[in-house]
Amino acid sequence: MLPTSIPLDYYLILSACLFVIGVVGVITRRNAIIIFMSIELMLNAVNLSMVAFSAFSGDIAGQMFVFFIMAVAAAEAAVGLAIVLALFRNKQTIYVDEINIMKW
């Protein structure tokens, strides 16, 4: 089933915009959890483009890939939040500019 009303370009532009917002978030924000949320936004931008490509080419592999991205993002979230928690226990901060024992 092809989505006929919205052309592929629109999906790609939206996905590229979301990806750039995510990248800007990672670069500009200093709170580890917000950086992590921006990374999730990047991954979801990729999911959108994967599904769009998959739907327009009629190939199922792209949609399958999306499930793997979601599973991996969940695994990363589990590990990442555990690391942030361990950091907070040691240092009472989650701001990455305050973590500078080693030269950043």
Partner: peptide, 11 residues
């Protein structure tokens, strides 16, 4: 130091 390395590597 170990936690700091892990956080930097992870992000």
């Amino acid at each position: 130091r170990s936690i700091e390395a892990a956080l930097k590597y992870f992000l």
